[in-house]
Amino acid sequence: MKEMSQYGMGTWNACFHCGNCTAVCSLTEEGILFPRKEIRALQMGLEDKLATSVEPWLCYYCGDCTETCPRDANPGELMMSVRRWLTAKYDWTGLAGLFYKSLSALIIAFVLVAIGIVAMGFVKDFNSEAVMYFGHILEFYLILTVFTIILIPNILRMFYFTVIKAKVNAPFGSYIAAIGNLITHMFTQVKTLKCDKQTVRWLEHFLLVMGYLGLLVITVFLDWFGTENQIIIYMGYITGGLVFVFTFLLMISRLSKARELNKYSQPTDWFFIIWLFLMGFTAFLVRLFIDIDLLNDHFWIYMVHLIVVSQWGMLLVPFGKWTHFLYRSFAVSFANLKKAALIKKLATAA
C-alpha cells in the first residue's frame, strides 16, 4: 500500500466504494470492471490481484471518474499510478521501478547516456559523417536490442501475470482474434473513442502516434538524414513536424492544466513529452540544416539530437511511459482473452 504512493498521488484512501467510478467509465463492461476494484485491491494490499489484472491498461485516463468522484479519491490518478507500478512489475531488469521511484537515478542515467554520446563524438573527432553513420547504426541496433532483450521479455512477463497466473482459460480461437485487434489498437488506440467527448483528443493522439512511427521508420530505416529522395525528405518533415507540434500542444495543455486528466503529472511523464518534442524538433532542425547547408557549422545540433534519441531509446522506451502504449495494446488483446474465457466459463456452466 505504502509503496504505491511512490508511484503517484494517493488519495484513494478516501474511497467509500460507491461504485461511481466504475459506472461512469465508458470503457467498463460486464466482466471488465475498474477502477473501483483496483482501489479495493490496493486498499486491502492484494498485490497479487493487482499484478495479475489487465484492467489498469484499459483505462485511458479521460478523467470522468476523478471529476465525478464523490469523495475526491481521484481514481483516475490511481489507475495511472497502478500502471507505473505494473510497468515496474513487468520489467525484469528492475530499472523501470527504480526510475519511477527515484528521480535522481533517472537523471543520473540521462547524464550517463549523454556523456557516452559525447565521448563517442570525441572519439570520432566530431566528424560529422562518421558520427552520423555511427548514429544511424546505433539507432538501428538500439531498437533491435531494446525489443529483444527488454520489451519482448517484459511483454511475455505481462502475459504470464495477466493470463497464465490469473488462470485465464480462453479458447484457442480467441488467441488468433486477439492478435488481430492487437495490431489495430497498437496503431489507432481506437478505444479512446469510446470515452466521452474524446474525439479531438483521439485525433491528436492518433496523429502523434502516426507521426512518431513515421519519423521512426523514416530516420532509422529510410535514412532521412542521408537520403536524397525528395519524397522521403518531405515525409520526414511532415512526420517530424507532427511530432513536435502535437507534443507542444500537449505540453501547453499540461501546463494550463485545463483537463482533469492533466491535473497531476509525474516527472517521468514530463520527460516523456519533452523528449518526444525534442526528438521531433531536433530531427526537423537537423534535416533543415542539412538542406540549407548549415549542418557542418552547427554540428552540435546533431549531437543534441543523437543524445536525445539515445536517451529516448535506452531509457524512456524500455523503462518509461513509452511502454504504456505497448502494454496497453497487448492489454486490450489479453482483456479480450479474458472475456472469451468468461463466455466459455458461462457456457460450460450453463
Binding site: C18, G19, V24, R36, T68
Partner: peptide
C-alpha cells in the same frame, strides 16, 4: 451509486456497479 443516466431505446439507461 448510479453514475449516469442516458437515453437508450427510448427508455432510460441507468448505469451503476
Amino acid at each position: 451509486r448510479t453514475a449516469k443516466i442516458e437515453e437508450r431505446n427510448g427508455r432510460l439507461m441507468v448505469r451503476s456497479e
